[in-house]
Computed example of a mutant assay.
Amino acid sequence: MSGVLLGSILSAMSTGFGALPILFIQGSITHRFRDTLLAFTAGIMMAASLLSLIPESLATGGYIQLVIGVFLGVMTLTIMERNIPHIDLGHTKSGIQFDEKALLIITAITLHNIPEGLSVGVSYASDTADTGNLIAFAIGLQNAPEGLLVALFLINQKIGKFTAFLIATLTGTIEIITGLLGFYLTSYIGFLVPYGLAFAAGAMLFIVYKELIPESHGDGNERTSTYSFIIGLLFMVILLEIL
């Protein structure tokens, strides 16, 4: 219980950690830096899905459970994407006033964190040691650039730096609740574990291919982002080998 709580808190608070630099920077952060960070995160999440979550799902269940779980994760994010307003945070050219539309966007970002929290929670329900810690680490890395981009978006709407930092941090807190929910569901209903691990893998793969990779290629930094993606993947492999 303490492990999943700590992991959920740390992964959720990574959103605020990522937004922290806005309190100190004077100028804007370059697209190259953001794209490199997003691609590195994509590599981390890809390795975590393919080398940890999917093998764990197969080991605790089987191929059928894996397929069902992956598609549930993908379909959940697909439905959310179609019904929740979305904005390309890293590459928006036109300003959006901080009105009802901006509030909808902030709400959308918060709701998009729900599957990530579930991914962390179900990973801690696995029998394999350190799976939860690895997934919490991977999700936390994904949350950091997300928090930075959210804060930058808010600053572009003439919101104060501290307020932007606070709002960006709060968008990640829902992951604590959903992390605990995912953990309890899979812990007390044992047959859900392989489905939950596969759900987490599907959700993460969707985020990688649909969000992180396209955003990291949005400003002509494809080659740099590709190198960063590979480095991130290899970095996660090293962590898996060490742990």
Rank of each mutant, 00 (worst) to 15 (best):
T128H: 07
T128I: 06
L181K: 02
E146S: 05
G140N: 03
G172D: 10
F183H: 11
L152A: 06
T186G: 10
L141Q: 04
A138W: 07
I139A: 02
T173M: 15
L181C: 11
L134D: 00
T171D: 04
L154C: 05
K158T: 10
V150R: 04
I159L: 10
N143F: 12
T171M: 06
K161S: 14
L154H: 03
G147E: 14
I174V: 15
T171Q: 05
L149F: 07
A168Y: 12
A144C: 09
L154V: 01
V120G: 12
I177Q: 04
L170C: 10
A138E: 11
V122Y: 01
G179L: 11
N133G: 09
E175I: 08
L154Q: 02
I135P: 00
N156I: 03
K158A: 15
N143D: 06
I174N: 14
V150F: 08
T131F: 00
S119H: 02
Q142N: 10
Y124D: 02
N133T: 04
L152Y: 06
A164R: 11
G179S: 06
L166E: 09
L141G: 08
I167T: 14
E146F: 04
K161H: 11
L185Q: 06
V122R: 00
T163S: 13
T186F: 09
F165S: 06
L170W: 04
A168P: 12
E146L: 14
Y124F: 15
T171K: 03
A136N: 03
L166Y: 13
T131D: 01
N133R: 04
V120P: 04
Y124P: 00
L185P: 08
A138L: 06
L154Y: 04
D130N: 15
T131K: 03
